[in-house]
């Protein structure tokens, strides 16, 4: 049990739930994992809101791999800083990443939170997220693409440049300007190593193909993260979380029904199944249905206004 590994909050808490560790040990582990952001000696102003961004990440459901990775990066960055203080050699911190996963599996959300966390750790100066796609980078005539791409890079300096569906840059074949965009990006990510984090995101398969055709690109991204589809339980937890954030609650019947709807959806649709966006759409629709139902009623109690019943959930949840 002495093995040193980063532990995410979820793991610590489930150990407490299973009775593997006591509360004292849990607190000690929590403090350890918190230590790097809560007491960075160099930038005090950032330290104040440091826990917030990390909490945001911890509160995301599932995504264990991502959480562990962020904790590792934090540990690495902190030790690197201390090594530099003592005059030891330290590799530059290259954090360019590739996110692979279906839509609605949390890629953009994670990128946004990571930006904040990196900012609070002092890795990035601003930590904002610039979200672009092919059309923002690729131009119309020769030379236009490099200019457009450089513009976006300039906007993203100090933060994260997030390229959604990045594989589309290589779509058009040899003569396509997309290649020019890739070349400009590659140059920028070397030149601005310290002030830019580049994230390429897209579907699993297409991204894998894209990286195979651009071997130079692959090696420049040290971090690859897979975003697996959410399991049914995770989708349910996401639904409950979304509802509780909006101060709504499900009755037992409604919970069962929602579970059934989600399970059915997962069976029928292929690519868009394990997907938090689907949950959000269902929930927003349900809330509207509840509103219509309640409008007819009189003397509504606080409980009535919060409760989502079975009839609010539409049978097939069709979009």
């Amino acid at each position: 049990m002495k093995e040193r590994q980063v532990r995410t909050l979820d793991q610590i808490l489930s150990d407490v739930e299973n009775g593997t560790i006591g509360a004292g040990q849990a607190l000690s582990l929590m403090r350890e994992s918190k230590f790097f952001t809560s007491c960075p000696s160099n930038n005090k102003s950032h330290a104040q809101n440091a826990p917030d961004a990390l909490h945001e990440l911890e509160d995301l459901i599932g995504l264990d791999e991502v959480k562990r990775l962020v904790l590792e990066i934090r540990a690495f960055a902190e030790i690197r800083r201390r090594r530099l203080e003592k005059g030891l050699a330290a590799d530059p911190l290259v954090l360019h990443m590739i996110f692979k996963g279906n839509p609605g599996t949390g890629k953009t959300t994670v990128a946004r939170v990571m930006g904040k966390i990196f900012m609070q750790m002092g890795i990035l100066s601003k930590g904002h997220l610039v979200e672009v796609e092919r059309a923002d980078l690729v131009g119309e005539y020769i030379g236009h693409t490099a200019q457009k791409t450089r513009e976006q890079i300039k906007k993203a300096l100090g933060g994260i440049l997030f390229i959604d569906e990045a594989y589309s840059l290589a779509r058009g074949g040899e003569k396509d300007f997309g290649k020019e965009a890739i070349d400009t990006l590659v140059k920028a990510m070397e030149d601005h190593k310290d002030e830019l984090v580049l994230v390429l995101a897209g579907y699993q398969e297409e991204m894998t193909k894209f990286l195979l055709t651009n071997p130079g690109l692959r090696s420049r991204f040290p971090i690859h993260i897979d975003f697996p589809d959410y399991s049914l339980e995770e989708l349910m937890r996401i639904a409950e979380l979304m509802l509780s954030q909006r101060e709504y609650r499900l009755t037992t019947g409604a919970r069962e029904k929602l579970k059934k709807i989600l399970a059915d959806k997962r069976k029928t649709h292929e690519a868009e199944t394990g997907n938090a966006r689907l949950v959000r759409n269902i929930i927003e629709k349900t809330i509207r249905h509840q509103a219509v139902r309640l409008l007819a009623a009189h003397n509504l109690s606080k409980e009535d206004l919060m409760m989502i019943t079975e009839e609010d959930l539409e049978g097939d949840g069709e979009e």
Binding site: L9, I12, L13, S14, V16, E17, N18, G19, T20, I21, G22, A23, G24, Q25, A26, L27, M30
Partner: peptide, 20 residues
């Protein structure tokens, strides 16, 4: 919050909730 590990499940869940 306590250090012992042999609590019944509701207590363990409650402790984890508190810690969270």
């Amino acid at each position: 919050l306590s250090d012992s590990l042999d609590h019944p499940e509701p207590v363990r869940l409650g402790m984890a909730h508190t810690l969270k």
